Amino acid sequence: MAILVTGGAGYIGSHTVIELLNEGHEVVIVDDYSNSKPEVLNRIKELSGKDFVFHEVDITDKDALKEVFKQHDLEAVIHFAGYKAVGESVAKPLMYYRNNLNGTIALMELMNEFDVKNMVFSSSATVYGMNNEAPFTEDMPLSTTNPYGTTKLFIEQFIQDQVAADPSWSAALLRYFNPIGAHESGRIGEDPNDIPNNLMPYITQVAVGKLEKLSVYGDDYDTPDGTGVRDYIHVVDLAKGHIKALESVLETRGVEAYNLGTGVGYSVLDVVKAFEAANNVEIPYQIVDRRPGDIGSGYADATKAHKVLDWAAELGIEDMCRDSWNWQNSNPNGYA
């Protein structure tokens, strides 16, 4: 039986597919390349030494997605597919609601139809909103500050309601903090289609000369240096967390939420300095206005994932900075 990975050609999806293949799972990827490149599929095969099945499908196209379910004997779904830029979601909320929510509804309806009732969902720490004090724990009240976060919160509710309606379902809601880094080979990494929305690809594109300087969004937060503090986690640690979550989902029923983070907060300028130190590269930056919907400080309490899933982040900020630069320096134009 195979694992269906929606958005499996994307940044986190591609790293997770490698871990799945390394663990001996059969993998079926669906992706529409809205924020990914076809070349990543060749790199996954190269790094894993294994093959998988790929379908170019937009998950909002339920008829096309249904053909995937018909063709494969699926055991579980790891659901990454969705738009993910906070700023863009504020500017284009309806686009985010249509894509992320309708796509997930179509997916879950087909899971019911084909009796595939095991799911690992790519959620986000954005569901903790602006009113909780870090470190965030899974039992805190949830709220959102932007449409992207709202889609994650709604989908968590979809899944919880479906599990309540049908106790044969099993699901894990993985609330990521801030994934950075790349595969240590430098062969796969984060390659956004437009100007980066996330910090590390912005830094690496400045370092490689594609962008003139880094924009730091706000220096007046209530943090040690005024810039936003986040919990940065290496994408390979994050991918391994999906394997642990999948193992748990396949062995249990019900739904659980887990924070996947390191439990350590770094400011934007901390990351800039760590990148410069790790790679001996200077990163010019400018302070600009805050982005709508951003919070000042957010980092995880990942105790539950450690206790229940036997998972903990192993790679530090130096590893994240080194591997990010190795990827960008080896692939100055990404997968192009």
Rank of each mutant, 00 (worst) to 15 (best):
N42G: 15
V236F: 01
C321E: 06
S170P: 08
G82A: 12
T150Y: 06
V249Y: 03
P284T: 05
H234Y: 14
V127A: 02
P332F: 05
I243S: 07
G7L: 14
A106Y: 07
D32Y: 05
Y266M: 06
L315Y: 14
V28H: 02
P224M: 08
D166G: 03
Y266T: 13
T303Y: 09
K152F: 01
S170R: 10
I233Q: 05
G10R: 05
V281C: 03
A164T: 13
I203G: 03
F136G: 02
S14N: 12
N331M: 01
D231Y: 10
L110M: 00
N42M: 07
Q328V: 00
I12C: 02
L246I: 05
A302C: 08
N35R: 11
D231K: 07
G189F: 06
T145E: 12
L153A: 04
K210G: 11
Y11S: 14
G209T: 01
Y11H: 09
E184V: 11
I243T: 12
P147R: 07
V264R: 10
E133Y: 05
G241R: 13
L107E: 10
R291N: 11
Y299Q: 04
N193C: 06
G49M: 05
L260K: 04
H55K: 13
N193T: 08
F121Y: 15
E282K: 13
S168M: 11
R98M: 14
D32W: 01
P332D: 00
K66A: 15
M95H: 13
A76G: 13
Y128H: 14
A336M: 10
H25M: 08
D194T: 13
K37T: 07
A312I: 10
I59Y: 01
V53S: 15
P332V: 03
S143G: 12
D166L: 06
V268I: 14
F158Y: 15
E39M: 04
M95G: 06
G129L: 06
P192R: 03
L21S: 03
I12F: 02
V77W: 01
E212K: 15
D294H: 12
G316N: 13
Y285E: 05
I29F: 03
N118Y: 01
K244T: 00
S248Q: 11
F114Y: 14
K244R: 15
E251I: 06
E212N: 09
V86Q: 00
P192S: 09
F154E: 11
D294G: 11
L174I: 15
V127D: 00
H25Q: 08
V90H: 06
P93F: 02
F121E: 12
L238S: 12
A64W: 04
F69I: 05
P179A: 11
S168C: 10
R291F: 03
A64P: 07
